[in-house]
Design a protein around this nucleic acid. Structure first.
Lengths: 210, 210
DNA sequence: CATCCTATTATTCAAGCGTATAACAAGCTC
DNA sequence: GAGCTTGTTATACGCTTGAATAATAGGATG
């Protein structure tokens, strides 16, 4: 007897890859890295398990692609927030964007942490981290340099780098705090703390960034 | 024929639990949460798989116990670093301890991140996080209050809390940066950045904490 | 030294894992 | 509209997983 098969429609390579990556992120966010099995991911993407190997040589490669896309998305959001306007506003918006939804989001955190925990175990993940970290740091440093320049404040390259590292640390740390325990912070508390702290770190007079 | 069994020696409940928890942490650190299987953990602890269920009702409960122990260990190290001495020294040592080995350690990071990624998925992990976070924050706030008091500087409770949150964020963020990419930072760079940043955040004159 | 309790081993179970491969059908090409 | 390419389904394989259960032996108790 003729076996009936599921009907399906073909997709372009890019579409399918994006669907699979999105499904991967969904699965990790909902059930952790353990719950992100080939079968679950395929089901979520509306395809059968075998298809995954047609697009990714191995499951690990798909995870890496998902990690890359996650970080690219975050970078894009925060970069977009800092566009246009004067340097002061751009710097402020960049900082605020990093401690405000959708960046402070338990889904994002869960994904981020799942990937971070693989960094010490797998050089491929370490490379992705490094790239996105350096890109983030460079963006921040550019903002700081422009800000100082506009004010006519002299700051050596080392100073700017040190500031960027410190401010980046603060942003990451507050992002963590706010995302892990959102109920502990009032509405604007995290943003205000972030702005006030950066003002102080840069030795600016209070209120200079608002 | 008589089946020969492996010889073994009984251990006290506390010993065995500690061994199992230590083995759990080892496995997670070396192979990720995915590699921390009941069998691997048992092998690492030198027992057979079945024994785990004698001490922990479920694998998840063992993971939670391991998470608790990890955080307790970190808290203990940083608290110990801040003992004795005057308030300024204690504050400085506390900060430095958090961005210096053994706290900045890829093993610790891998473990921490693996557990963090479970927080949004499992309330039990969220509770453990909350407890250790609040304990850390309280310790830091105590140090700050004592420091301000000694200087005769007035600071409201809200101010102190805000400072503690910000400084905690900075510490966590720098810890992350330094641990994820240790090769990017010179020997004392992270400690110095941390101290200088906290000085600035608290609006102290440069060098006040060194 | 016999007894008893229980920590520990050994074995089994059903389920799920990542991967490999063969059969099928969608939809472009000519 | 016939033919061909290949994206997709379907199925199978060997292995591992967390958990449950039964059998054994360590070692304290009397």
């Amino acid at each position: 007897m003729a076996v009936t098969r599921r009907s399906y429609s073909r997709a372009t390579e890019t579409e399918r890859r994006e669907d699979l990556i999105a499904a991967t992120l969904d699965c990790i966010a909902e059930a952790g890295i353990q719950g992100a099995t080939v079968r679950q991911i395929a089901a979520r993407a509306g395809v059968t398990g075998g298809l995954i190997r047609h697009y990714f040589a191995t499951k690990d490669q798909m995870l890496q692609a998902a990690y890359r896309q996650l970080m690219d998305g975050i970078t894009e959001i925060t970069k977009a927030a800092a566009e246009g306007a004067d340097t002061k506003t751009r710097l402020r918006r960049f900082i605020v964007a990093n401690v405000t939804p959708p960046v402070t989001d338990s889904r994002t955190l869960s994904l981020w942490a799942a990937f971070i925990s693989h960094i010490p175990l797998d050089p491929a993940f370490a490379a992705i981290h490094r790239e996105s970290y350096l890109s983030f740091l460079a963006e921040l440093e550019t903002l700081l340099v422009a800000f100082f320049a506009e004010r006519g404040r002299v700051a050596s390259e080392q100073e700017c780098r040190a500031y960027a590292i410190a401010v980046n640390g603060l942003i990451d740390g507050l992002w963590l705090e706010g995302t892990l325990a959102p109920d502990l912070f009032k509405n604007e508390e995290l943003s205000e703390t972030a702005i006030a702290s950066v003002e102080a770190m840069l030795r600016l007079p209070p209120g200079e960034l608002s």
